[in-house]
């Protein structure tokens, strides 16, 4: 029997890998897959840091004109800026990162669908590995640089840190659930660039990455704060700053989007069967 994987994660008894080990193994594989591209990740961290500095100055200027705007002080606003820059990588805020569209176009998705494991759970596990890797390589540098240059605040006490960790994880799950839906849409649309662009706008603008959603005016603000994108950036950063606990909101959107994704997976399975003849 050939071994499955190499080195650190080799399984001499691959057939006996049970469901209990499957998903943790996939998380590790997702981590390792992305760890191959160290330089690309570090270059991304560098770009995120540079843009973080630029955004920070804009926010400082705004908060100098309007202290306590949106319930934040200047330090909160600068912290908001760098911690959200750090989220770009792990939350995959520019979209993509799943590899499903390529597999749908090449037909490899048929192989994924016959596996005795849910495509959605499988992809989620790999994506959690990706997020964990990018949290370290693309998340820490902008945050440390921001702390060094401007001085940032941090959650007070281990309880708040734990709550932030949980909220961050929920944010990644909501982000995954959304990107999974976007990826499945390729099955019906030949060219996914249009959907990808719309998704990118929604994930960067309505998540709180462009500006805190708390300063969006009127109905636009209310709309933005109730969409699932708020669960990816605005809610975790508010937990970090101690300005709110929107974990229930995150759980709700995660459940809704994951359920839609599960329904979508069933539809894709039918479609593939029809096309496969």
């Amino acid at each position: 029997m050939p071994t499955c994987g190499h080195g650190l994660l080799s399984f001499p008894h691959a057939p006996e890998v049970t469901a209990i080990y499957l998903y943790p193994t996939l998380i590790l594989y997702g981590f390792r897959k992305h760890a191959t591209y160290v330089w690309a990740a570090l270059a991304g961290a560098f770009t995120n840091s540079v843009f973080g500095i630029l955004r920070a100055y804009v926010l400082i200027a705004l908060w100098q004109a309007r202290p306590h705007l949106g319930g934040y002080d200047v330090v909160d606003a600068v912290t908001f800026c760098f911690v959200t820059q750090a989220m770009i990588g792990p939350m995959q805020l520019f979209g993509g990162g799943l590899g499903i569209p390529e597999r749908i176009r090449s037909g490899d998705i048929a192989l994924d669908l016959v596996r005795p494991a849910s495509l959605q759970a499988w992809t989620l596990a790999e994506d959690l590995g990706r997020a964990a890797y990018l949290l370290v390589v693309r998340g820490l540098p902008p945050t440390l640089l921001g702390a060094l240059l401007f001085g940032l605040t941090h959650p007070d006490g281990p309880d708040r840190w734990a709550l932030f960790g949980l909220s961050f994880l929920l944010g990644v799950v909501v982000s995954f659930a959304w990107r999974y839906l976007v990826a499945l849409s390729v099955c019906w649309l030949i060219d996914e660039r249009g959907v990808a662009t719309v998704s990118m706008i929604l994930m960067t603008f309505f998540s709180g990455l462009a500006l805190p959603l708390t300063i969006f005016p009127g109905w636009l603000g209310e709309l933005a704060r109730s969409l699932p994108f708020a669960a990816m950036v605005q809610v975790p950063i508010d937990v970090y700053l101690g300005k709110g606990d929107g974990l229930a909101f995150q759980v709700l959107w995660a459940a809704v989007l994951l359920a839609l994704g599960a329904a979508g997976t069933r539809l894709v399975r039918h479609k593939v069967v029809i096309q496969g003849g």
Binding site: A61, L62, A65, L69, L211, I215, F216, P217
Partner: peptide, 15 residues
């Protein structure tokens, strides 16, 4: 552009 407009929905002057 939307970022600039939202900023000016909150203030009358930037820098």
């Amino acid at each position: 552009l939307a970022v600039i407009l939202i900023i000016f929905a909150n203030t009358t002057s930037l820098g």
